[in-house]
Design a protein around this nucleic acid. Sequence first.
DNA 1: GCCGTTTTCGGCCCGACTGTTTTCAGTCG
Length: 574
Amino acid sequence: MKNLELAWILAEIGDLLELQGENPFKVRAYRRAARAIELLPEDIEAVWRRGELGRIEGIGKALEEKIDEWLSTGVMTYYEELRRQLPPGLRELTRVPGVGPKLAQRLYQELGIRNLDELEAACREQRLRHVKGLGARSEENILRGIERLRRQMERFPLGLALPVAQQLVRALAEFPSVQRVAIAGSLRRGRETVGDVDIVASSADPASVMDEFVRTPGVEQVLARGDTKASIVLKMGLQVDLRVVRDDQFAAALHHFTGSKEHNVALRELAQAKGLKISEYGIVRVDEGEPLAVATEADVFAAVGLPCIPPELREDGSEIAAAREGRLPALITLGDIKGDLHVHSEWSDGLHSIEAMALAARERGYEYIAITDHSPSLSVARGLDPSRLEEQLEEIARLNRRLDGIRILTGCEVDILRDGSLDLPDEILARLDVVVASVHSAMNLDEAEMTERIVAAMRNPHVDIIGHPTGRILGRREPYAVDMERIIAVAAETGTCLEINASPDRLDLKDVHARWARERGVMIVINTDAHSTDGLDQMAYGVTVARRAWLGKADVLNCLSWPELKARLKDGRR
DNA sequence: GCCGTTTTCGGCCCGACTGTTTTCAGTCG
């Protein structure tokens, strides 16, 4: 699977061309192509073998030739040549806030600066102020930018940024001159990590809102403060941008700042072709200069003849083509979820009793909840051996007789051992309603071994779900080496479901993989892997990932009622 | 570089903020 590698190369070509001062539209063409390939719902090599590279939106003759060369020989000559023409560290200079391609190029030409370290030294030695257009202020800003870059190289996970952003929004909403306020940007689109937080507000007195905003508790630095726009950095390192507009401009501004950039560009091109101009202030007819009324985001789309595109789909612009052709999916919502099929109780490493978990599920309006405690090899988690599991089945039977309004399903999260076998016998698994199989050990196998290990588990006639299929922990542990194409193919063949683990540390499967799985007819299940009653609330994160994967409720196992679900589970079909 | 029920050539989104160059380019989203 070379999609991501190719996307990375094309994006780098875009950056290198930009550093060389190439035609900006050529730069954009490479970036668009990179994005298209990154989000492509199948293996680029398969498309190539069919001779259909040119049918990918954004790939024309020139790019097709370069990709063909790269896939046939492993080398892209054009890329190699570009890399030779510029020092390798130059590209990272543009990661410093305030340093773009033009400045990076001049710093290289005039001061011989080739990387971050040299830029930092030049600032400290006050050599930048001798470059035309730069002064002492620029040196300070660049130094601060380098420091931030070094301290916080990673993006912030959704699960960390969202609560912070919600808190800020609540605080702004209470400010008297604020009329409306909402989260925008990549956070609203539900991306798994975000570089910053964007907030849009409406007010008749923007200056007062700016004053209030830059005094937010926990502000470490004010990066910019204009009449209607300000940027701050919180002590935790998270940057927050606020934009304030008039209340009648709020919907247009919300759409604009939700992005993505590529989505906005594509939508505005479409608008332009219809004689309209879309900006964050609204929509105007170019010939008359007359503004159109925009009360909601749906009005923005309606102006160019499109149905409203949900924020989670606004990524590379291909969603606009889908909308034009009536191919937008009816996305799953949290309300469609009928139960959670992967939770832990105090019987293994969970915090709460089975009854407490069941009542918490009932409170959330669920029809069922599966108790899937660990299996014996996970001794640190007090995994259940067959006899304790036996006791648990009796306990669940008792609770089911006693509790109304919620059905407790029996289950377990069984370990997939190094050789692909499971650490509970088939006779036991056969008696459970739901079997989740997961990898928790020997995570450093090579790709072939790890893939076959998981494939073996999927071929077990009792395994319904593969839990957190790539094992990643955001920001802490890389996914294990696994051939996702093959996992998806075998899942389709065996009727095994793949999990979107909703824990914000995991979000595993991720959006792109879940989208591939759906397109191959694999059923997805969204589970929280909750270890406490509160953990059940993380379902919302999983639903966000599913929406980004274009899933509807028909694609998701736990949107089924219990009778439907039973009929879909492997043992239930017998 | 790509793309085409206005176009196979000539387009390719739109505006705020910063620093500093007295009039705007570069950067950012």
